[in-house]
Design a protein around this nucleic acid. Sequence first.
DNA 1: CATTCGTGGTC
DNA 2: TGACCAAGAAT
Length: 367
Amino acid sequence: MNQNVKQIIEGFDIKAFQNDLIGWFEKEQRDLPWRKNQDPYKVWVSEIMLQQTRVDTVIPYFNRFIEQFPTLESLAEADEEKVLKAWEGLGYYSRVRNLHAAVKEVKETYGGRVPNTAEEFSKLKGVGPYTTGAVLSIAYGIPEPAVDGNVMRVLSRIFLVWEDIAKAGTRKVFEEIVRQIISYDNPSYFNQGLMELGALICVPGRPSCLLCPVQAHCRAFHEGVQSELPVKTKKGKVKEVQISAAVLENEEGKILIHKRPNEGLLANLWEFPNCETPLTLENPKEQLRNFLRIEYGMEVELAQPFATIQHVFSHLIWNIVVYQGKIVGDIKETERLKLVDKQEIENYAFPVSHQRIWGLTPTTLKC
DNA sequence: CATTCGTGGTC
DNA sequence: TGACCAAGAAT
């Protein structure tokens, strides 16, 4: 494969490309909050947030997160509840639980100093090949490839790489290309320049080739096939699941919430009690009552559904029918089952669908 | 290697 | 409006 990569970059003017790319990035880079300094902790946080997430979405989360946890130590010492709440709505919640664990590891094992070698840094939880390259190059100026979706798109066009970027192994091809062409004088701006170019100019669909600072180096533009690249196979349809959920109130007016398991979908987030109720089921409301009795040992009275909410994930769709109801008698609270005052609910981190459930819940209960 | 993991914006 | 997408990692 090394042989293959050398063939790919044959005849490529590496030095001129570096100058054009870095010169463009120096002039045109966006003013983003994580570019105010090179604090490894803040660069790290930004890179985790930016995984599969748009810049405009991340900006307010990043500012609030850094305000709340200004240093690596402050994050390491924080309660997970607070950390998850700061991430609420950003998605992919294992990112922040891994970051939290990794930051604790850095505090304990490395004296709070973020490791500056790929060997050590990449061992931390939630740190993969991309994040390793991004943080080491941006924070420490180390020439390590940082190959994300942008970089694969940009380089597939520049070098006419027709391999499917949806396949796991393809990333290595681009990492090898970057190792051959990366600037050792300024690996930070080289890597960021590739990504910025992908975000602003070399976009999916119809790129702005007439504005491109490296147009002269681009083989796809030369051939007029920039819109055909990169090659990316599509996924099939996602499964739909029917869910019945309940906003349950006790005699004191407290609301019952449940903390999801510490692994899997929406791990450790809070939710209103719910269960799966397949469409083949005759009486989903009765099924929900049975679930609540068996799972939590409680009796409830349920009203008619007051809302239906769809929650679209990347690989799954929930169709949630929402009931309001009251709890008959007492229940025993546990670590993952709590009765909370209505004003306290805002202190707990919920998935967006359950935020919406609470937003639509009637204030008056009629059973 | 394929699947699991969120969410909101865009065309 | 539905498919696709956006600075990936863990399993």
